[in-house]
Structures are given as structure tokens and as C-alpha cells.
């Protein structure tokens, strides 16, 4: 049913630390690896070794340059995937009921057997989280590794999404945002977790932890020496040359 379930008792999601992410793409690879086997249609590639390779991914890592007004530019690596929005617009537009948000934990999923591949849900998503698989003709999206997190056959430490499990810098955290004491809730509260494009009213569950302020330690210890005033002959030359 493509009606939204309303507030869910659990709000499972990710906290992605933009301060720690080094843009290694391990999460992209792990995601593709895990979701290629088992849950739903495999994530296909088209012409993977040709001149114009293309394929379905549920997670992609962008890099941005951010230019503060009074400091050098910094590069921020930015993994982009489904935010499992509370007011998910991709769910309500679906004509077949294939796209749904789980009432128990808020995970947004696609029932691929009912998906006609019209693509409207991808149009409705502001975050580019959905990609229509060119081989299967059905919509693919992050499942929050629903086939890992409840999987009793896996060792307990593996019962987290593949991207979280694999992240070598610990930049990805998984947990329940409905629980104020969960890791993700505490991290988000401490670090000022951000919603992406809040102006579109999607109420994303996932939060992005902003890069920490690089304050004093970023200033060069040699900085005071740069402000040397020329004196003597050099000072006289400086004054004359500035006047010409």
C-alpha cells in the first residue's frame, strides 16, 4: 500500500560523518557486492568494460569543494543514498503499491514483483536515491540491508548494512533514530546532524554530520612572521615604490 504508515515505532537509518569520510568508495563496492546476491534483482551493469560503462548503484560518493569566506577551500566527500524519509514522496506517487515504507521500522522498500518500472518514484525523490535497473526494468534503492540487519544466520557484528560494516574510517553509523539514546541519535545531537534539502518537506531520517570546524590548529604557527614590516633601506624602498 502506498499510503505512508505515519510515525513508526522505530526509525532505522544512517548517520554519515562528512568529517571522517575519506571518499574511498568502499561503501559503494560493499553495497553493490551485497545487493548483487539475494535480495531482489541483481544490480546490473551495462557495457562495464566498454567505453561508456553504466550500472545500477544504491550508493554513490560525490566530492565537493567548499569555499569558506575567510579560509582555504576544503574538499568534502559526500556519500549519497536513500535517506528513508518519514514523508517519503517516492512512496505515495507509486501507482502499483510496489513502493512502500515499513510500518515497523520505517525502511523504504520496493516490492519488485509489483514494480512496473514507470520511474515516477525516482522523479519524486530529491536525492537521486532510486535508479531504474536497465536489465530488470524495476526500481532499485537502498534497502538498509534489510536482509542483513535482522539476519540471525550472520554473526551479530555483521547485522548492520554492508556499507556501515565495511567503512574503514567508521564514517557510517547505523541505528534507530526513534531511540534518543541510540548511537546515531546521540551523534546527531552532539554534532548537529543535518537534513538534506529540508525545504522539500521530505523529513529524511538519515543525518549527515557536518565537517568539524578546523579552528586554531589550522592557522600556521609561522603566521605572525608573515606580518614583518620592512625597515631601514628596504623600508625606504617600500615607501618610495608604493608611492610611484
Amino acid at each position: 500500500m502506498t499510503a505512508l504508515p505515519g510515525p513508526t515505532p522505530r526509525k532505522l537509518g544512517l548517520a554519515i560523518d562528512l568529517d571522517t569520510c575519506v571518499g574511498c568508495n568502499a561503501c559503494v563496492t560493499a553495497c553493490k557486492g551485497w545487493n548483487d546476491q539475494g535480495y531482489g534483482a541483481p544490480l546490473s551493469d551495462q557495457n562495464p568494460y566498454g567505453s561508456e560503462p553504466s550500472g545500477t548503484f544504491l550508493n554513490r560518493v560525490h566530492s565537493y569543494e567548499v569555499l569558506p569566506a575567510d579560509a582555504p577551500a576544503q574538499v568534502v566527500n559526500f556519500p549519497r543514498s536513500c535517506l528513508h524519509c518519514e514523508a517519503a514522496p517516492c512512496v505515495t506517487v507509486c501507482p502499483t503499491g510496489a513502493s512502500y515504507k515499513r510500518a515497523e521500522d520505517g525502511i523504504v522498500l520496493v516490492n519488485e514483483d509489483a514494480c512496473i518500472g514507470c520511474g515516477l518514484c525516482a522523479w519524486a525523490c530529491p536525492y537521486g536515491a532510486r535508479e531504474l535497473d536497465a536489465a530488470a526494468g524495476v526500481m532499485k534503492k537502498c534497502t538498509l540491508c534489510v536482509d542483513r540487519i535482522y539476519n540471525d544466520n550472520l554473526p551479530e557484528e555483521d547485522r548492520v548494512p554492508a556499507c556501515v560494516r565495511t567503512c574503514p574510517t567508521g564514517a557510517r553509523h547505523f541505528g534507530d533514530y526513534a531511540d534518543p539514546d541510540s548511537t546515531v541519535s546521540r551523534l546527531s545531537a552532539e554534532r548537529g546532524g543535518m537534513e538534506l534539502m529540508p525545504e522539500l518537506g521530505t523529513m529524511p531520517v538519515n543525518r549527515y554530520l557536518p565537517p568539524r570546524k578546523k579552528g586554531v590548529e589550522q592557522a600556521s604557527p609561522l603566521a605572525p612572521l608573515l606580518d614583518i614590516r620592512a625597515a631601514g633601506l628596504a623600508g625606504w624602498l617600500d615607501r618610495v615604490l608604493s608611492r610611484i
Partner: peptide, 26 residues
Amino acid sequence: MESATGLGAIGKVRVFERGHTAGNYL
């Protein structure tokens, strides 16, 4: 781009590198 990435509080945002070298569905 600032609201999409949440990085507007730091400064002006510019694309440094896309997540992939070739095209995709999006």
C-alpha cells in the same frame, strides 16, 4: 547545492568530483 549537501554553513559549494566517471540513470 548548499541545501542539498548541507554544507552551506561552511561556504560556497562547488562540484569537485562526481561519484562516477560515466553516465548513469539519474
